[in-house]
Design a protein around this nucleic acid. Structure first.
Length: 188
DNA sequence: CATGGGATTGACT
DNA sequence: GTCAATCCCATGC
């Protein structure tokens, strides 16, 4: 993946990340669900401006933005758009590829479709933690790479974002159409 | 310094 | 369907 891939409008990147591969220390999966966040809308953490928390979001594209959600889960994002713009793509679900037994151990569940079918689940399965905030997704310990040949990028479905109270109507969620590894079905 | 709100998940009715 | 766990950090006094 090139740096320029991320230095684009966050909605384009969110759609194009479907089918790409997230890897971390032997575990990997195909991205099947994403959501876009941008500092122009209130659901984005960067809406409040530049603070210690949002510094990564306003930083260079292609880095990981990892934060703690509900005091329990670490959520993984890919920072987008030029430096100075606060925008990122939340990685919401993966189709597991490699290291499935390690993922099972970390997650405490056996079913493959339950390993990475949610933003908090996939970080637990891959061992992504807050210490990865700000690391480079091109060459860090968490890497996103081009789609593999075996995985045919399906059609992409669009839906409203999940679990937010602000700007809930924006159609900024992207899913691999028909995937069995989503966090939720796409609304009809 | 005290308070309150989550980009969630799993357990339970 | 409901609900609590748990902690970072933004905000306000």
């Amino acid at each position: 993946m090139r740096r320029s891939f991320y230095e684009r409008p966050v909605l384009e990147v969110a759609r194009d990340l479907i089918g790409c591969v997230v890897s971390r220390n032997g575990c990997s999966g195909v991205i099947v669900e994403t959501e876009a966040y941008h500092d122009s809308e209130p659901a984005c953490h960067a809406f409040v401006g530049l603070t210690p928390r949002t510094a990564t979001l306003f930083g260079p594209p292609g880095r990981a933005y990892v934060y703690r959600s509900y005091g329990i889960h670490a959520l993984l994002n890919a920072v987008c758009e030029p430096e100075g713009v606060g925008a990122a793509v939340l990685i919401r679900a993966l189709e597991p590829l490699d290291g499935i037994d390690v993922m099972r151990e970390r997650r405490g569940v056996a079913a493959v479709h339950a390993l990475c079918s949610g933003p908090g689940k996939l970080t637990q399965a891959l061992g992504v933690e807050l210490e990865h905030n700000g690391t480079d997704l091109l060459r860090g310990s968490v890497v996103i790479s081009e789609p593999i040949a075996a995985w045919r990028p399906a059609e992409v479905s669009v839906d409203r974002r999940i679990g937010i109270t602000k700007a809930p109507h924006l159609p900024w969620r992207f899913c691999a159409t028909g995937s069995r590894f989503l966090s939720r079905r796409v609304a009809a």
